[in-house]
């Protein structure tokens, strides 16, 4: 009897949890639509957006560059280790570049961006809400979504592809350091094979598309969580955590979907 009741209770909790998640996705979508409709200010007064690009970019720049370097160096080591077994160590440049441009660049840069800039955006908007700065703005007949949220959204969306590109470039440099300078792979082969094998449309552009999609996802989640935060210190800290968790999962899931769409069709021929 009581067991049945507890099972029932669990099912009910699961159901209400699920339906409230669905509601949240709905709210977030309406929020996105409203924000896009009210992006005029962010685009007309573009210095507002530039300031946010600077904010998001500068915040993430160091961590992106350092991580890119190390990831590239590890790729150099691991790649050489495997390739030389097949006598293909000259292809190290190709391996490093393709891994970075197609996958690691957008994905790792996206994850770093989410935890550095995404969380900062959520905390900033959430604190502005908790300290009634957003209400004050509304009382001055200024729409906080147009004035505060939209510039941060566009700033994040525009920064992310640049950061992913920097990550990949740094990674290639790291691979070069380890592969060519340290291990002694032929520099000419390293670069020329890379140049020949990396395709502009298939590899580079697809990587850029990925980083654009990740940038939209992370920044959308970050601004929504901030705007929707419970306006207390605890509420803001919860929202910040949710931003990092949700956007990291979103990046990984989207990466699978995008990879399946982009690279399966082309490789068959």
């Amino acid at each position: 009897m009581s067991r049945l009741a507890s099972v029932r209770g669990q099912i009910e909790r699961l159901g209400s949890g699920l339906s409230s998640q669905v509601w949240r996705v709905g709210f977030a979508s309406r929020f996105l639509a409203y924000m896009l409709l009210h992006s005029g200010t962010a685009l007309r007064r573009f210095h507002l957006t530039i300031a946010e690009i600077y904010f998001a970019g500068v915040l993430s720049l160091v961590i992106i560059l350092v991580s890119g370097l190390f990831v590239g160096m590890v790729l150099g080591l691991q790649g050489y280790e495997t390739l030389q077994r097949f006598g293909a160590s000259e292809s190290l440049g190709v391996l490093v570049a393709l891994s970075l441009v197609r996958e690691l660049g957008p994905v790792v840069a996206g994850l770093l961006f989410a935890s550095r800039a995404g969380s900062a955006i959520t905390a900033e908007i959430g604190l502005m809400k908790a300290t009634e700065q957003l209400s004050a703005m509304e009382m001055m007949a200024v729409d906080p979504v147009a004035r505060v949220v939209a510039p941060r959204f566009w700033g994040g969306v525009l920064s992310m592809p640049l950061l992913a590109a920097l990550f990949s470039a740094m990674g290639v440099f790291g691979g070069y350091l380890v592969g060519v300078q340290l291990i002694g792979v032929d520099a000419g082969a390293f670069w020329s094979q890379m140049q020949a094998a990396v395709d502009l449309r298939n590899d580079i552009l697809n990587g850029v598309y990925k980083s654009i999609v990740f940038g939209i996802a992370v920044t959308w989640i970050a601004v929504f969580e901030g705007y929707d935060a419970v306006p207390t210190a605890e509420g803001v800290s919860r929202a910040t955590t949710r931003t990092v968790v949700t956007s990291s999962l979103a990046i990984l899931a989207l990466d699978f979907v995008l990879t399946a769409l982009m690279f399966t069709g082309g490789n068959g021929q």
Binding site: L127, M128, T131, E132, Q133, S135, A136, M139
Partner: peptide, 8 residues
């Protein structure tokens, strides 16, 4: 507003 709500 109660605590001023200045833009920080």
């Amino acid at each position: 507003f109660q605590f001023g709500a200045l833009f920080t």
